[in-house]
């Protein structure tokens, strides 16, 4: 299979705009431990029977802020991220519009509407130790069983 077939959707592949968007939210990412990694993939990457060669946008905490890069997703087990965010088509379109604005608020809205799905690849305690609490709360990820 060629990379072309499962290339990241345009909005996720736009590392330049993401870098700028994350830089605007520097305060939110400041508590993250160095090396903390958040992955973003298109929804089909996490759906049953999805492509096996999907790509992933990675935000990584570096010394001078958040680095943004692209790499292979592989699978739930292989993806080397603390947190994985899957994004459906509607969310991709909306993020494309919001990338120059308040992208965190947009993600929170999309999560609540069910257009984003968040997967924790580490335990709650490990995420908290790595400084995620504020960020994930700000993004609207439920930290407790959301039986509602």
């Amino acid at each position: 299979m060629t990379a072309h077939m499962t290339a990241l959707p345009a909005v996720l592949a736009d590392t330049v705009r993401w870098r700028a968007a994350l830089a605007r939210e520097a305060g939110l990412f400041a508590p993250l431990a160095s090396g903390a990694r958040i992955g973003l993939v298109a929804e089909d990457a996490v759906l049953p029977g999805g492509p096996t060669d999907a790509r992933m946008l990675v935000w990584e905490k570096a010394r001078d802020g958040m680095a943004v890069s692209e790499c292979e997703f592989g699978s739930f087990e292989a993806a080397d991220v603390d947190v994985l965010i899957a994004i459906d088509a509607q969310a991709q379109a909306e993020l494309d519009r919001e990338l120059s604005g308040d992208v965190i608020a947009a993600m929170r809205r999309l999560l609540r509407a069910g257009h984003l799905l968040f997967f924790a690849r580490r335990t709650l305690a490990a995420l908290e130790d790595a400084g995620y609490e504020g960020l994930l709360e700000q993004m609207g990820f439920a930290f407790l069983g959301a039986c509602r």
Binding site: A120, R121, G145
Partner: peptide
């Protein structure tokens, strides 16, 4: 199968 938690309260 391995599908990570969407509610981090739960175990890996």
């Amino acid at each position: 199968s391995i599908v990570p938690q969407t509610l981090p309260h739960f175990r890996p």
